[in-house]
Simulated scan of single mutants.
Amino acid sequence: MPATSPTIANLTMIAAPTLMFLAASTVLLLVTGPSKAQAPQPQQVEIRGGETVEVPGAGGRVIKLRFSRVVADGVCLSPRGCARTGAPVVEIEAVGAAAPTYRLSPAAHLGAPFVPVQGRFVAFGELVSPPRELSTVNRAMPLDTYVLRLTVTP
């Protein structure tokens, strides 16, 4: 059966928009690429007390952070209980030539909830403290028993 002009017209009307869509999609994918389509996401970092971690960033930028001190862990020390527990307060250091110390806390009146470190932001996440026993309730816990969770922007 020979192709008639109405058949060719119908095929052209269906195929032309499909080919144009595929061509435009290919060009868009080539221009944006998979690496440019996704924005870098903040990183969750865990640091044990006294340790230093390296946090990689965009363009190969690495920052080193040291969890140097627990000022207050926010845990109630009273054997009778507390009406309200305090907010944790910690200090971290940006390891480098000029190593500033930053005080972080979720309570803004005790420390900063986030700080700028070498062009990125480091935000307080959570301080995980060790469980207290009756024998250690009035003693300071060793720094290496704490784990600090931070969020670092790219």
Rank of each mutant, 00 (worst) to 15 (best):
M141D: 12
V75F: 12
L65R: 05
S135A: 15
S5P: 09
G49D: 04
C76T: 09
V55A: 02
R84G: 13
G50Q: 07
I92K: 05
E46A: 14
P88R: 07
F21N: 08
V147T: 11
V75R: 10
L77H: 14
V53P: 02
L22R: 04
G74L: 01
V70E: 02
G119A: 03
A3N: 12
G96S: 09
G74M: 01
A72N: 13
M13A: 11
A108G: 07
T7W: 14
P79T: 09
D73R: 10
R80V: 14
P40R: 05
M141H: 13
E93Y: 06
G59H: 10
V137N: 15
R103W: 05
F124T: 00
P100C: 09
A16L: 11
E51V: 06
P34L: 11
T153H: 02
V122F: 01
F21L: 11
P79I: 06
F114G: 01
F67R: 02
A107P: 05
I47D: 04
V137M: 15
T18P: 03
A16E: 07
E126W: 06
V128K: 09
E46C: 09
V152I: 06
V90F: 02
T151Q: 06
G57R: 05
A23L: 13
P6R: 08
V53Y: 02
T85F: 10
T4F: 07
G60I: 08
T52F: 03
A107V: 03
A83T: 10
Q44F: 07
P88D: 03
S5W: 13
V137L: 15
L104A: 11
P131K: 12
